[in-house]
């Protein structure tokens, strides 16, 4: 089936996200207006107008009532989903790189880039339902420079039960902070190069990192151990764990700045499908003519969206052969005759 091409943005796409129920798709780009789409037919429902800078991240809450957007204009805005009205603007000291709702949506965390004399900062804001938003965050964690070098965060996520904050950095490091007192709990070197994205699966038992070192790695969210590694030959910008199959989708491609020197054919701007356990690539979907910056699979498992440097969002529906696909390795209790058949193929 031909994918829907969502032509709502004028600049490179930075993030795409389905809501919890899978009926809505949010997209943001380096232009100023995040958009909301119907995930079934690719119709645009509306936009959220008000930001004055590129949108780096967004997050929709569990019950699809509120949306948070993080922007390079050093603000984070809270929107009413139904009306597109901006409820509040949370002012930061630098471009806001990431935003994430805590479970229960009573608070959220942001991460801002270092700016002028300010270091990178993690902030946790309360978000009470009565609309009494305080300007001051509940907690502010300063991330000091390492030596003389500024530290650039790339992503922020809450772990299960809001127990900790996971922050990824462009040095390839992941740090774990305590959201009650701001203490650094743990630190792991996950990659050799920049981590472009860190995201959990739905129940937060696993998380996956995507890095400029051409790999993506799957981690156990409980004891922070690396489980798997997916190798490609281009930088990986986003990776997502499928909820319905043991599959991983990877997106990336040759870096945007060196794209002009190569033809679209060799940039490898494709969504790659890997088997989660065996780390084998078994398929890819082509179509974009710039590196893929963002990916998400619909929680209902019927389609997935990819957003790229070319400014387009493509909404692909999985075909029947994919949906019917079985694990290449039969379960142990299946007969040996089955194996025979597969071996003969």
């Amino acid at each position: 089936m031909r994918p829907y091409l969502l032509q709502g943005h004028e600049r490179p796409i930075t993030v795409v996200q389905f809501n919890y129920d899978g009926d809505l798709l949010f997209t943001a780009s380096k232009d100023l207006v995040p958009s909301m789409w119907r995930s079934e037919d690719g119709q645009r429902i509306g936009t959220f107008n008000g930001h004055k800078g590129a949108i780096w991240d967004l997050d929709c809450n569990r019950f699809s009532t509120r949306l948070l957007t993080a922007s390079a204009d050093a603000t984070c805005k809270l929107w009413v989903l139904e009306t597109g009205e901006c409820l509040h603007t949370f002012v930061h000291r630098g471009p806001v790189r990431g935003v994430s709702w805590a479970d229960g949506a009573k608070m959220f965390a942001t991460i801002s880039d270092p700016f002028v004399e300010h270091n990178a900062k993690i902030m946790i804001f309360d978000c009470p339902e009565d609309g009494n938003y305080s300007e001051a965050p509940r907690l502010e964690i300063d991330i000091p420079k390492v030596g003389n070098k500024r530290v650039n965060p790339t992503n922020i996520q809450w772990t299960a039960f809001n127990e900790a904050l996971l922050v990824s950095f462009d040095s390839g490091v992941i740090k774990l902070y305590d959201p009650t007192n701001g203490e650094l709990i743990d630190e792991i070197v996950a990659h050799e190069k920049k981590i472009n994205r860190l995201r959990f699966n739905r129940d937060k038992t696993l998380f996956i990192t995507s890095s400029a070192d051409f790999t993506s790695r799957l981690y156990d969210a409980v004891d922070l151990k690396q489980l798997k590694e997916y190798k490609t030959d281009r930088p990986v910008n986003d990776a997502v764990i499928s909820e319905h199959k043991d599959h991983i989708l990877l997106g990336g491609g040759q870096e945007a700045m060196s794209v002009t020197t190569t033809s679209g054919k060799v940039g490898k701007f494709e969504t790659r499908f890997f088997h989660l356990v065996y780390e084998e690539e078994f398929g890819c979907v082509k179509g974009h003519f710039g590196p893929i910056n963002a990916l998400d699979i619909n929680p209902n498992g019927r389609n997935y969206a990819s957003g790229a440097e070319d400014g387009y969002v493509r909404l692909h529906f999985f075909d029947k052969s994919y949906l019917d696909m079985k694990d290449p390795v039969p379960e142990a209790d299946e007969t040996d005759g089955e194996e025979e058949k597969t071996a003969a193929e």
């Binding site: 129940d203 937060k204 038992t205 156990d220 969210a221 489980l227 989660l276 356990v277 390795v329 194996e339």
Partner: peptide
């Protein structure tokens, strides 16, 4: 057969981790 054996083992290992994490949840 060799490969399948190895893959089965890997899969079992992965499933164990996942099951443990889910049990905690």
């Amino acid at each position: 057969l060799e490969e399948t054996k190895g893959k089965r083992m890997e899969r079992a290992k992965y499933r164990e981790v996942l099951a443990r994490n889910k049990a905690i949840l």
